[in-house]
């Protein structure tokens, strides 16, 4: 049983590390453009880096029929948008100081992070 318990604790440690401690690598904006695909339960890429102190545009393309993926929220920036199926939607990001801002769907099942750097 000892080994079972150790394995169980190991799984818990793995969950904590994987979901909370691990820092995902971000995708940088190139030529002022970045496109995020909304498909199969996730944003791809989910971690986006945009330059600080300058306006930028993120294009979301929703290819997921799930109604959950329909809405996009960036609460820190007070942005809420409706993503139409199979259509590109441009989200304008104002010039900001460096920081991290979460974005997600209405139920927080789709999650991502906007890094201003």
């Amino acid at each position: 049983m000892l080994w079972v318990n150790i394995a169980g604790m190991g799984v818990i440690g793995l969950i904590i590390w994987w979901f909370w401690l691990y820092k995902s690598s971000s995708v940088d904006m190139s030529d002022g453009v970045i496109e995020v695909l909304v498909k199969d339960g996730v944003y791809q890429p989910a971690v986006i880096k945009v330059p600080a102190n300058q306006e930028s545009t993120i294009t979301f393309f929703r290819a997921d029929s799930s109604p959950c993926s329909e809405s996009l929220h960036i609460p820190d920036l007070e942005i809420a948008a409706t993503l139409r199926l199979n259509k590109k939607v441009d989200i304008s990001i104002p010039a900001m100081q460096p920081g991290r801002h979460a974005f997600h769907c209405q139920m927080k099942m789709y999650t991502g992070e906007l890094i201003v750097d």
């Binding site: 994987w18 979901f19 691990y22 995902s24 199969d40 339960g41 996730v42 944003y43 791809q44 989910a46 799930s66 927080k108 099942m109 789709y110 999650t111």
Partner: peptide, 17 residues
Amino acid sequence: HFYVGAYNSLKNHSANM
């Protein structure tokens, strides 16, 4: 759709329904 979604979420270090 559940399994693909779960796999993609895990890859992104996130979890959902």
